[in-house]
Amino acid sequence: MIQRFLKLCAAAGLAVLMVGCAAPKKIDYTAFYAAFKASKPRSIVVLPPLNESPEVGATYGLLSQVTVPLAEAGYYVLPVTLVDETFRQNGLTVAGDIHGVSVAKLRDIFNADAALYITITQYGTKFMVLDSVSTVAATAKLVDLKSGRMLWAGQARASSNEGDNNSGGSLVAMLVTAVVKQIIHSSTDKSYGLAGVTSFRLLSPGQEGGILYGPRSPGYSTD
């Protein structure tokens, strides 16, 4: 019975390692260059992210950390707290409803060039057989508020076990380590820090799948 359990644990551990090593999907920017150069977006309104994770705090955990990378990328970002309050004053408190507002209405209200739509696909800590891992993953798209055309789309993720090597040590030690990590991550809100990493990877030009340079960046080109 014990041998069977150890075999199952080993198989599960191998599966976890294989999934963790999967290469991120590459983004083809060529489909966006024409629309992006024609639009030349300077200002962005960031909508509250859709949350597909079970963590209720995921939306604002990520939203609170998107302004800096976007500003450093060369864009003017409307204050996210002001945008959120504007939606609330108009009876829109659910991200899904906000994402359903027409681009014409968004432009009329905020007078921005483009809107950033973010979807959180993972947020939180999961206990697995041989490890405890916190992960934050998100996808995003930038939409022109005049034409409704997509100007850019990307995705990014960050995990607490990046660079970890769990191949050494006994099974019991690995299980104990996993439980300890679960407690630490839950008590210190590890996901919030990872949300910051994810936002920078997603919204920093030059990153794999990162947003394109804005007009206030030295890296911006009109060619």
Rank of each mutant, 00 (worst) to 15 (best):
Asn51Trp: 02
Glu162Asp: 15
Ser132Lys: 08
Ile27Met: 15
Phe32Thr: 07
Phe110Ile: 10
Tyr60Gln: 12
Leu106Lys: 14
Phe32Cys: 06
Gln155Thr: 13
Ser102Asp: 12
Val80His: 13
Asn90Val: 00
Glu85Ser: 13
Ala31Arg: 14
Ala114Gln: 04
Ser159Glu: 12
Leu145Phe: 02
Val136Lys: 04
Ala71Asp: 04
Gly163His: 09
Leu47Gly: 10
Ala115Trp: 07
Pro54Val: 04
Ala95Asp: 13
Tyr60Lys: 09
Pro49Arg: 02
Leu63Ala: 07
Ala95Met: 13
Asp164Ile: 03
Tyr75Lys: 10
Ile27Pro: 00
Asn111Pro: 00
Thr119Ser: 12
Ser147Thr: 15
Lys141Thr: 06
Asp113Ile: 06
Ala112Gly: 04
Leu116Lys: 06
Ala115Asn: 09
Thr121His: 04
Ser160Cys: 06
Asp131Phe: 00
Ile120Thr: 05
Asn51Val: 04
Gly74Tyr: 05
Ala115Lys: 11
Leu78Ile: 06
Glu52Met: 13
Gln155Asn: 11
Pro54His: 02
Asp113Ala: 05
Tyr75Trp: 08
Asp84Ser: 15
Thr59Ser: 14
Met128Cys: 01
Phe110Thr: 09
Thr139Pro: 00
Phe36Lys: 05
Val77Glu: 03
Leu47Asp: 07
Ala156Leu: 09
Ala158Lys: 06
Gly74Asp: 10
Ser160Ile: 04
Tyr117Arg: 15
Pro54Gly: 01
Ala137Ser: 13
Ser43Met: 09
Pro54Arg: 00
His99Lys: 11
Phe87Asn: 13
Leu106Thr: 10
Pro49His: 03
Gly96Gln: 13
Ala138Asp: 02
Thr121Tyr: 02
Asp144Lys: 01
Leu50Phe: 02
Val80Ser: 11
Glu162Gly: 11
Ser147Met: 00
Lys126Arg: 12
Ala112Glu: 03
Gln65Ser: 10
Thr125Trp: 01
Ser132Leu: 02
Asn111Gly: 06
Leu92Met: 12
Val129Gly: 03
Val68Ala: 15
Ala112Tyr: 02
Asn111Ala: 15
Pro41Met: 05
Asp164His: 07
Ser39Leu: 05
Tyr29His: 11
Ser39Glu: 05
Val129Lys: 10
Leu47Ser: 08
Gly61Phe: 01
Ile44Ser: 07
Gln89Ile: 00
Gln89Pro: 02
Ala158Gly: 13
Leu142Glu: 03
Gly57Thr: 10
Ile98Tyr: 09
Ser43Gln: 07
Ser43Arg: 09
Tyr76Ser: 11
Lys126Ala: 09
Thr125Val: 03
Ser147Tyr: 00
Ala104Leu: 08
Leu116Glu: 08
Ile120Asp: 02
Val101Phe: 06
Tyr29Leu: 15
Ala153Leu: 05
Ile109Tyr: 04
Gly57Trp: 05
Leu92Asp: 07
Val143Ile: 14
Gly61Met: 01
Gly100Glu: 09
Phe36Thr: 07
Glu72Val: 04
Thr81Ala: 14
Ala71Thr: 15
Tyr33Pro: 03
Phe36Glu: 06
Lys37Ser: 12
Leu145Gly: 02
Asp28Tyr: 06
Arg88Asn: 11
Lys40Ile: 13
Asn111Ser: 14
Trp152His: 10
Tyr60Asp: 13
Asn161Lys: 09
Asp84Cys: 04
